[in-house]
Design a protein around this nucleic acid. Structure first.
Lengths: 333, 333
DNA sequence: AGCGCTCACGTGAACGTTCACGGGGGAGCT
DNA sequence: AGCTCCCCCGTGAACGTTCACGTGAGCGCT
């Protein structure tokens, strides 16, 4: 009557000990290769454990030896190659430190980001990633958890932020176009927020420094299709444009495509320069000229800062938390 | 003398309780929005917690309410778009279940895979992924942990495996080429293992069914450069070849590139068909014809099976654990 | 006044493991 | 024989939370 129908209680180290006729400690020794145990005893314990289907509780273990670190990595869209590269870099940096990385893909939905943050907070020792929600909210949800942000456009003060500085790179890109004779240069900005992006500011600055107007701007969804549509818009509104700088490489690839469909030759009829430096850009035709970011460094920096926050070392200064873009000339411009 | 220099002991719920002049339980109530607590008391507790920098131990919490599930996702190379897609799909499927996914990128090194498995085993409730080590070893390292494998070529018996069945798709691909008049069709196989891949077997079978020989085979590293080199080899050894089927899309893209460098027009001079159905394939020029796999389904299946293994439901049968490839004709063939 | 009910809070126990000890027994030595 | 030492093993405590209770104060009702 008591043997059946009861809740399927977890099999603990006690059960194994009893079954093998030893104590908990001996079982622990056997499972963790601790030494101080007879070979035959060890085998007997191991057999018992296997027979009972015993698996140690990671919680109980973690509770007593507090030695495992795991960080949450929050990403808007893993399928976006930029974030893929950043994630890969972060995973790599974390691996060398023996950290566990819990990855959350918010699918570009800010409301998901909120829920994610909520469930994350109780499961990791730190959060790094690309968050778009307001700082106060992050602060509230993270509840004192170390947080390292990536490329947060509005100056994040409360948290460490890896800043992306493309100013010099964009200037170099515009100079490159200028030197090639282009005078009518447009931009395909993002369409996400209502305000223009920081990248657009760099573009405008660079244009101004050559005495060029920066009014030929269209907005593009961050996808290949978005880039296609945006280039069409841009050329419709500004037929004189002979070169475009884009918010990122994905959009640029869309522009490449739209240009091809229109029968425009790249770079002869239309020059295209992207932003991000995706390895994907080298695969398309023609290979994409771009302002490249070192995503490996980006991921590594984020992890490094997280480590310092975690250990209480002196964190990196804002001046050090920067990744700069640099012009990588391929064939599209 | 006692106040300084001691180890930086963790601040616990006790400390908060003492500081706020209440009991542990009240603190717990305040932090978890449990109700049965006075509003002012709650605020006082929250303030104390914030002031002390208190953060609950995920281990202690997990120990008592055993409600959070986390699975390990092991991937050979996140930068390989195929695995990116699978990972994204798995993340998505896991999210709907409220699981945490710990991601490990072994960087294509089997020795890393071993270490990963070791550290993973004590940190997750199940493992899903692409593992290449021998079954006995996985078995030993996993120690009873549910394991779901993806596309394991050598029949995995001990573990659930999501099988990739490209036979029909590859037959369709070869038929497509045959109908277009191709009689000399080569293949770019992988170079990883010493034996030919299962995909090569499908290729050979399909060729045989059209009475064609399948001896024009080169081996390619799984990279764009590998594909380039392999096509060069293939054409050197078999100049009569007018069409190639490749181990995967990445290799196919390399082949596309090598063809372009040689001045061969695709598909007129050389037809190319890949395998995997990466969305990346639609971006290259010309868009890649391929035997497409539904990676979303792949990831979803893996997670679904993991769920069944975890809850003790009746697991999916091998017959259900299959993802079939189907020919997706674009422009490269 | 007495009863019962609700609200706000506290107390022991439990979750499952490892750590720091402590101890028995046999082998080897003097 | 007696001592020491080492090997192997067991016992209480601790890790930091939450759960299931228990309790007292205050209030409304008859």
């Amino acid at each position: 009557m008591a043997s059946s129908g009861t809740a399927p209680r977890r099999v603990t180290i006690h059960d194994v000990a009893r079954s093998a006729g030893v104590s908990r400690q001996t079982v622990s020794r056997a499972l963790n290769d601790k030494g101080e145990i007879d070979a035959t005893t060890k085998e007997r314990v191991l057999d018992a454990a296997l027979a009972l289907g015993y698996r140690p509780s990671r919680f109980a273990r973690g509770l007593v030896r507090q030695d495992t670190i795991s960080v949450g990595l929050v990403i808007p869209d893993l399928l976006n190659p930029f974030f893929t590269e950043v994630a890969a870099a972060a995973l790599d940096a974390a691996r060398t430190r023996g950290w566990h990385v819990v990855v959350y893909d918010t699918g570009d939905r800010p409301d998901e980001e909120r829920g994610t943050l909520e469930m994350i907070a109780s499961q990791v020792d730190a959060v790094v990633g690309y968050l778009s929600r307001p700082e106060e909210e992050i602060d509230k949800l993270a509840r004192g958890l170390p947080v390292v942000l990536i490329d947060r456009e509005h100056r994040a003060e409360r948290f460490s932020t890896i800043r992306i500085d493309g100013e010099a790179g964009v200037h170099a890109a515009i100079r490159h176009l200028y030197d090639a004779g282009h005078r009518h240069i447009g931009m395909l900005d993002h369409a996400g927020r209502s305000e223009p992006s920081v990248r657009h500011d760099w573009f405008a600055g660079a244009m101004a420094s050559h005495g060029l107007p920066a009014h030929a701007v269209s907005r593009a969804d961050q996808s290949v299709e978005g880039g296609e549509a945006a280039l069409k818009d841009l050329l419709a509104a500004h037929p004189e444009v002979t070169a475009v700088f884009t918010f990122n490489d994905i959009v640029a690839i869309g522009a490449l495509r739209a240009a091809r469909r229109r029968g425009l030759r790249v770079p002869d009829d239309l020059a295209v320069i992207g932003f991000d430096g995706l390895s994907l850009g080298a695969l398309v035709e023609p290979p994409l000229t771009t302002v490249a970011l070192n995503t490996r460094e980006l991921g590594a920096l984020a992890v490094e800062q997280t480590a310092r926050l975690l250990t209480g070392e002196t964190p990196l200064s804002t001046g050090e938390l920067v990744v700069r873009g640099e012009l990588r000339v391929r064939e599209s411009a």
